[in-house]
Design a protein around this nucleic acid. Structure first.
Length: 470
DNA sequence: GCATGATCATGC
DNA sequence: GCATGATCATGC
C-alpha cells in the first residue's frame, strides 16, 4: 500500500488537465501517469472511509467513476456524448488478471452501452450512437488481484485506442449482424456468440430485464454492445508488450490485408472460401497440395491441416483469439454421425455450485462461436474434408436442455451423488462424463472428499444434427 | 454398435 | 504439472 504517496490534493486535477480544451493525446498523456498507482492515491479521505465502511461492496463501475471525477476532475455522465466531449474521447476502466502460466488476460468483456433496439434499427453504422460514443476509447487497465481492496488495485496501462482498419471491418459486420436481427424482429434471439469482436451481452440487474423491440411483440432481454473478452486480451497484450518491449506471443492473421474482402464478403465468408478448393479431398491429398511440414501421427493433425488451409503457421489464429471463436475438428463415421462426443474443460465441484446460471462458466463456453472443420470417412475408409461451418448454439437449446443438465449436475453435487450425473441417454443435447488424466486426477468436493474430474459434453447426435441441418 | 468410463497427447 | 482437446477401452 502506498500510503506515503497520498494525494487528495485538488491541484492534481485542476492544474494538470483542462479537459474541456484537451486534445485526445493530452488526455492520453495525462492518463499514463496513473500507471503504477492506485485509486486510493487520488480520492478524498472521506470517500475512502465511506467505502471501507461498506460490507460486500459491489465494485463494478465505481473505479471508473472515481477516476473520472477525482483524477480527471469531471463529473461522470452517462449520456450519448463521449466523456470528453470536445476531444471525443470515451473513458473506460477495465480489469486484467495475471495468468498462472504467465502473461495477462482481460478479466471481462468491455461493456460499451445498452442497446436501444428502436434506435439501432434505424441507424447507419457510421452515424450510430455506438460509433459516436466509442470512436476513441481511452482504455485504462488495472490489475485485478483476488482479495485486494479495490482502491488499492494498481493501474497497468493507459492507452488511447482508435479502431484499426482491419478490426473495423469485422466490428462493423458484427454491428450490422446485430442490427439485422432487430430488423427481422428477432432481438430476443440475439446471442453473444452470433458475432466476432463486438458482442451483444446480456445486461441488467438480474440478466432478466426485458425490453420492447420494434418489429415483434416478443420482449427481448436487455443487451449491451461490448468488446469481447478475447478481443480485450489481445488489445492489452498488444499495447503492453509494445510498452514493455516484450515479445508478443505469436498469432498470425488469416486475412492479411483488407483487400481480400471482396464485395459484400464478411470475415466468415473469406474463411469458408479458403476451404472450398479442398472439399472432397482426402487428408493425404490436402497435405500434399499444401506441401505442409506437419506430423501425420500427432493428435492435432487434422487441426494442423485446417490451419494449413487457412494459411496460418502459428498455433493461435489472431482473429479467432480476438473473437473467441473455437475451432473444432470433427470426424464423421460413414453414417454421418461424429465418432466422438465433444468435450469441454473440467468443472470444479466446489465452484459450480456457487455459480448463477446467467453468468456461469458453461454458459460462457457455449455462447462462444464455433468453427467446425468436418472430415468424413468415405467408402474406401479414407478421411475426406466434408464441410466447414460457423455455429452458435441456439438460445432455446442453451436455456432449455443445457440448463436442465447444468441444474441437475449441481443438484447431484449438492446431494453428494457423484455417480448420478446426467448421462448421454438422459438428455438430447448434453451430458456429464469423466475428463481426467486417470482415476487419481481429482477435484475436491463440497463434502470434503475428492472425485475424478468431470466435464460437460455435447452429445454427438446433437452435433450431428447441427452439421447436417446447416 | 453404443453408452459410459477412462485415459492419451500436446503445449504452455 | 496441469489444462485442454481428443480419443481409446470395455462391457452390455
Amino acid at each position: 500500500m502506498k500510503r506515503s504517496n497520498f494525494t487528495t490534493d485538488i491541484d492534481l486535477k485542476g492544474a494538470s488537465l483542462a479537459y474541456d480544451r484537451a486534445s485526445p493525446d493530452d488526455i492520453e498523456r495525462y492518463a499514463k501517469r496513473l500507471v503504477g498507482h492506485c485509486t486510493r492515491e487520488y480520492i478524498p479521505a472521506e470517500k475512502i472511509r465511506e467505502y471501507e465502511g461498506i460490507k460486500n461492496l459491489s465494485v463494478k463501475g465505481i473505479l471508473g467513476q472515481l477516476i473520472e471525477e477525482f483524477y480527471f476532475g469531471k463529473k461522470p455522465n452517462s449520456n450519448q456524448e463521449p466523456d470528453f466531449v470536445r476531444a471525443g474521447v470515451e473513458l473506460k476502466t477495465t480489469p486484467v488478471k495475471k495468468l498462472k502460466k504467465g502473461g495477462y488476460s482481460s478479466k471481462e468483456r468491455l461493456v460499451l452501452g445498452i442497446i436501444d433496439y428502436f434506435k439501432m434499427a434505424e441507424e447507419s453504422f457510421q452515424e450510430s450512437a455506438f460509433v459516436k460514443k466509442n470512436a476513441k476509447l481511452l482504455l485504462i487497465f488495472y490489475l485485478h488481484e483476488e482479495g485486494k481492496f479495490f482502491l488499492d488495485l494498481i493501474f497497468k496501462l493507459a492507452k488511447l485506442w482508435r479502431i484499426d482498419d482491419d478490426d473495423l471491418k469485422i466490428i462493423m459486420d458484427d454491428w450490422l449482424k446485430i442490427q439485422k436481427k432487430i430488423k427481422y424482429g428477432l432481438a430476443h434471439e440475439i446471442s453473444e456468440g452470433d458475432t466476432l469482436y463486438l458482442g451483444a451481452c446480456t445486461k441488467g440487474a438480474n440478466s432478466k430485464t426485458l425490453r420492447q423491440q420494434p418489429f415483434s411483440q416478443e420482449e427481448a432481454m436487455q443487451r449491451a454492445l461490448s468488446l469481447k473478452q478475447g478481443f480485450m486480451t489481445s488489445l492489452f497484450n498488444r499495447f503492453y508488450t509494445i510498452e514493455k518491449r516484450k515479445k508478443l506471443e505469436k498469432a498470425e492473421k488469416i486475412v492479411k490485408n483488407i483487400g481480400e474482402y471482396k464485395k459484400g464478403m464478411t470475415f466468415e465468408d473469406v474463411v469458408t472460401k479458403r476451404f472450398e478448393p479442398f472439399i472432397g479431398k482426402t487428408t493425404d491429398e490436402i497435405h500434399k497440395m499444401l506441401d505442409l511440414d506437419i506430423n501425420k501421427n500427432a493428435k492435432n493433425y487434422y487441426a494442423d491441416l485446417a490451419r494449413g488451409i487457412l494459411g496460418v503457421r502459428t498455433k493461435k489464429i489472431d482473429e479467432f483469439e480476438k473473437a473467441g471463436v473455437k475451432m473444432k475438428t470433427i470426424r464423421l463415421g460413414k453414417n454421418g454421425i461424429p465418432k466422438e462426443h465433444m468435450s469441454f474443460p473440467a468443472f470444479k465441484y466446489t465452484e459450480i455450485i456457487k455459480e448463477e446460471w446467467e453468468e456461469c462458466t458453461l454458459r460462457e463456453q457455449l455462447e462462444q462461436r464455433f468453427f467446425f472443420v468436418v472430415y468424413r470417412y468415405n467408402e474406401k475408409n479414407e478421411l475426406v474434408l466434408d464441410k466447414v461451418l460457423f455455429w452458435t448454439i441456439p438460445m432455446s437449446d442453451l436455456e432449455g436442455e443445457v440448463k436442465k443438465v447444468w441444474d441437475e449436475t449441481r443438484r447431484q453435487i449438492e446431494r453428494g451423488k457423484y455417480d448420478k450425473f446426467p448421462r448421454s441417454k438422459d438428455n438430447p443435447v448434453s451430458h456429464v462424463r469423466p475428463h481426467a488424466q486417470n482415476a487419481e486426477d481429482t477435484f475436491e468436493t463440497p463434502q470434503g472428499g475428492r472425485e475424478m474430474k468431470k466435464c460437460f459434453w455435447l452429445n454427438r447426435e446433437y452435433i450431428s444434427d447441427v452439421i447436417n441441418l446447416e
